[in-house]
Amino acid sequence: MSHTILLTVIVLGSVGLAAAVILYFVSQKFKVYEDPRIDIIQEALPGANCGGCGFTGCRNFAEALVKADTLDGLNCPVGGATVMADVAKILGKEAVVSEPLVAVVRCQGSYEHRPRTSAYDGVKECRIAHLLYGGETDCHYGCLGYGDCVEACQFGAMYMDEKTGLPVVIDEKCVACGACVKACPRNIIELRKKFKKDRKIYVSCVNCDRGGPARKACKVACIACNKCFNVCKFGAITIQNNLAYIDSFKCTLCRKCVTECPTSAIVELNFPPRKAEEEAVKETLTQK
């Protein structure tokens, strides 16, 4: 009996030893040199593998960072400025601070605002409904409401509001990776500059129809009346294809356009209750 055990131990032990030796030599022979900094940088990155940087996964991004001459144009939206500063330190390069962004859903076509004119029956995915037709309402530009963006978000930063049928972005969780922007077949979601206290002013509409049909399809559609364009002193507003657009990098959050908009298509969020207008101007100046 003890003989058998001894034999087993000897045989298995020697097989294991031989395998270990072979493995060692093989791994030496086929060793591929890799810049050790890649590993260090990958450690420093958030490791979400979200693809928000434009590379497939954090490892590829780390490789690109090591190879790059300057860090200009390379940004990890998840880690933001702090992570990019760490990376710059490791590589001994200059950090390029890029503006933090946040995803914004530009549609207010809730059940209440947009009457349904047909019933879609089929796969409840925006990308498939979008192929078929304009959607259940007469607005052929707005949100379809099947939540492809929510599905695409890896950070739990989006949910569907059951009352409105529209997706909502949770600002604190959004890392601006852009997955929802890509997932939306109608380009409704946009990455905009992140202001202090998550304050936002944007045209919450993407309808390119003329004012009449747009308004008929949705109560809060942009009708391209030019009022906001005329009131904006900073040149942040452009009107194209029957649609107003506010450039978040030019906008100063003066809120003038919001009061001008006749259809409430321009939305302001997270602002304190309105004070007198002069004070509001003062505030924006101090912010600057």
Binding site: L132, Y133, G134, D138, H140, D209, R210, P213
Partner: peptide, 11 residues
């Protein structure tokens, strides 16, 4: 001359 929803399902 205007945009109207046609057979494609779009305007």
């Amino acid at each position: 001359i205007d945009t109207v929803t046609d057979i494609s399902g779009y305007k």
